[in-house]
């Protein structure tokens, strides 16, 4: 694992300091929102949620390394990635509620994110199903000489899917500008990564003739710096890269899951391996922020999340009319008839 902690205090620029504080703020916002959504589900205020606690540094570090023109095929835990990228909390909450302000019109379960305004593609439930799409989009970017690269995120479980294999192979064969970013939280529901794969995930890249890197996914600076270098290399046309960002899923797979059935939690909130604690200590030691700043950022985040949640909750649910539109650009007669029967 690459460790950057020792040699980075000296060389840090003003711009990078500001960037890291922005990154830390996004991590706190993501954590706050994550906890809010878990408790809202427990209170029956939302139907379902897939927590991301533990993956804040991985997601935000990746997001910091990307540019607005890049295109992201994310997965269902990526609220940290999306928040740093500029996706609005309102849009995210409206999606969660399935209310009438949701830009996807209440059609998808909570956690199935989308924000076209920041080039973030609509997320499916199928693990790994975004990967071959990312390769196709990257092919188009290369062919059209468009600015930007494509980034795809996925969990460690996705590395066992045929989609993973096909996408690594096709990306390599066509040498397209794509970053495969594995948010390795070490658990695919109840199945641990050491059973999922007998090799380190980054090593799989070698078999496809692409580069593989491993980073400490709990360390924002490590994720950001390594990923930025990778992204710059991809941008320069040097081919696809696979990154294995190792973190830990601190919560359940989803609000319907009970991890006590299959594991003892190894990292709990506030412990010294919690990515928020790791990053906080690191940034203070690097003099990127003083020790009072975290508390200020946290209280601010709570205020934002609480008020936006309440606002979003007041918006009425998506109308049943939304069930009949956007199936085709032009409705089929079947749908016209079914709409006539039911509405």
């Amino acid at each position: 694992m690459i460790t950057v902690e020792e040699n980075m205090t000296e060389s840090i620029s003003k711009e990078e300091k500001a960037l890291l504080v922005k990154g830390y703020t996004a991590m706190v916002l993501a954590r706050t929102l994550d906890k809010k959504l878990v408790s809202a589900q427990r209170q029956g205020r939302i139907g379902f949620y897939t927590p991301m606690m533990g993956q804040e540094a991985s997601q935000v570090g990746l997001s910091m390394a990307l540019l607005p023109e890049d295109f992201v095929y994310g997965y269902y835990r990526d609220i940290g990635l999306l928040i740093y990228r500029g996706g609005s909390i309102e849009a995210l909450l409206n999606q969660t509620m399935g209310n009438s302000a949701d830009s996807a019109r209440g059609r998808q379960m909570p956690s199935h994110l989308m924000d076209k305004s920041v080039n973030f593609f609509t997320v499916p439930s199928m693990v790994g199903a975004n990967l071959t799409l990312a390769v196709g989009t990257a092919y188009a970017y290369k062919m059209r000489k468009r600015k930007g690269i494509v980034a795809a995120t996925f969990g460690d479980g996705a590395t066992s899917t045929p989609d993973f294999h096909a996408s690594m192979n096709f990306a390599s064969v066509y040498d397209v500008p794509v970053l495969f970013f594995c948010e390795n939280n070490q658990w695919a529901i109840s199945y641990p990564v050491e059973k999922q794969s007998k090799t380190d995930i980054s090593e799989k890249a070698r078999a496809y003739g692409i580069r593989g890197l491993k980073v400490d996914g709990n360390n924002l600076v490590d994720v950001y710096r390594t990923t930025r270098q990778a992204v710059e290399s991809i941008r320069a046309g040097e081919g696809p890269i696979l990154i294995n960002a190792v973190s830990y899923r601190m919560g359940p797979h989803s609000t319907s899951d009970d991890p006590s059935k299959y594991r003892k939690d190894e990292i709990s909130e506030g412990s010294d391996r919690d990515p928020l604690v790791v990053t906080e200590k690191l940034l203070i030691s690097m003099k990127v922020m003083d020790e009072h700043l975290p508390q200020a950022i946290k209280s601010q985040a709570e205020k934002i999340v609480d008020s936006k949640f309440e606002e979003s909750e007041k918006i009425p649910p998506a109308s049943p009319e939304e069930t009949f539109t956007d199936v085709y650009a032009e409705d089929s007669w079947m749908l016209q008839e079914e709409r006539g029967d039911l509405l």
């Binding site: 295109f71 071959t132 390769v135 188009a140 059209r144 096909a166 096709f170 066509y174």
Partner: peptide, 28 residues
Amino acid sequence: ADRVIDTPLAEIGIVGMAIGMSVAGLHP
């Protein structure tokens, strides 16, 4: 070869790439 693309032997690669190309504005 850029527009008439021979592919490796994987239907999910062909279909997935085509979807991703279409999302990016090509007409596969």
